[in-house]
Lab assay of single mutants.
Amino acid sequence: LLPSFEIGAWTEDDVYCWVQQLVRKGDSSAEMSVYASLFKENNITGKRLLLLEEEDLKDMGIVSKGHIIHFKSAIEKLTHDYIN
Rank of each mutant, 00 (worst) to 15 (best):
L1Y: 14
L2D: 15
L2Y: 14
L2Q: 07
L2I: 15
P3D: 15
P3F: 11
P3L: 05
P3G: 15
S4F: 06
S4W: 04
F5L: 11
E6M: 07
E6K: 05
I7L: 07
G8P: 13
G8S: 14
G8K: 09
G8R: 11
A9Q: 15
A9N: 13
A9C: 12
W10P: 07
W10Y: 00
T11E: 12
T11M: 14
T11V: 07
T11S: 11
D13G: 02
D13L: 03
D13S: 03
D13W: 03
D13I: 00
D14C: 01
D14I: 03
D14F: 10
D14S: 02
V15P: 05
V15N: 11
V15E: 05
Y16N: 06
Y16V: 08
Y16G: 05
Y16H: 07
Y16C: 10
Y16I: 08
Y16R: 03
Y16A: 10
C17E: 12
C17K: 07
W18F: 06
W18Q: 00
W18K: 00
V19G: 00
Q21W: 05
Q21R: 07
L22S: 06
L22D: 01
L22Y: 05
V23L: 07
V23T: 12
V23G: 13
R24V: 13
R24S: 13
R24I: 14
R24A: 14
K25W: 07
K25G: 11
G26R: 08
G26D: 12
D27S: 11
S28I: 15
S28P: 09
S28H: 09
S29D: 11
S29V: 11
S29M: 09
S29I: 08
S29T: 11
S29Y: 13
A30H: 09
A30S: 12
A30M: 11
A30P: 11
A30Q: 15
E31R: 06
E31M: 03
M32D: 04
S33E: 15
S33V: 07
S33Q: 11
S33N: 11
Y35A: 06
A36H: 00
A36V: 05
A36Y: 01
S37F: 00
S37V: 05
S37M: 04
L38H: 08
F39D: 01
K40T: 00
K40Q: 02
K40N: 05
K40P: 03
K40R: 10
K40Y: 01
K40I: 06
E41W: 04
N42H: 15
N43I: 04
I44A: 06
I44H: 01
I44V: 08
I44E: 02
T45I: 03
T45K: 06
G46S: 03
R48K: 14
R48T: 02
L49A: 01
L49E: 08
L49C: 00
L49N: 03
L49P: 01
L49I: 02
L51T: 14
L51N: 11
L51V: 10
L51P: 00
L52G: 04
L52I: 02
L52W: 00
L52A: 02
L52H: 04
E53L: 03
E53V: 09
E53F: 11
E53I: 00
E54T: 04
E54A: 07
E55P: 07
E55Y: 02
E55G: 09
E55H: 09
D56N: 06
D56E: 04
D56T: 01
D56L: 05
L57D: 01
L57I: 04
L57C: 01
K58S: 04
K58I: 10
K58A: 10
D59M: 12
D59K: 15
D59F: 07
D59L: 09
D59I: 10
M60G: 01
M60K: 03
M60E: 10
M60P: 03
M60H: 07
G61E: 00
G61S: 02
G61Q: 04
G61Y: 01
I62D: 01
I62N: 03
V63D: 08
V63M: 15
V63K: 15
V63I: 10
V63Y: 08
S64M: 00
S64W: 05
K65E: 14
K65G: 04
G66S: 14
G66R: 14
G66Q: 15
H67E: 06
H67S: 07
H67I: 08
H67V: 07
H67N: 06
I68W: 01
I68D: 02
I69T: 13
I69C: 10
I69P: 04
H70A: 15
H70Y: 15
H70W: 14
F71C: 03
F71M: 14
F71I: 13
F71V: 04
F71Y: 03
K72G: 04
K72L: 13
K72C: 06
K72S: 05
S73R: 14
S73T: 13
S73E: 14
A74W: 05
A74D: 03
A74F: 04
I75T: 03
I75H: 00
I75W: 01
E76L: 03
E76F: 05
E76H: 09
K77G: 07
K77V: 04
L78S: 00
L78H: 05
L78M: 11
L78K: 03
T79M: 08
T79F: 08
T79S: 13
T79R: 15
T79A: 13
T79Y: 10
T79V: 09
H80Q: 13
H80A: 13
D81C: 11
D81N: 10
Y82H: 14
Y82D: 10
Y82P: 10
Y82R: 09
I83G: 13
I83N: 15
I83L: 13
I83P: 13
I83F: 12
N84Q: 15
N84S: 13
N84K: 11
N84I: 08
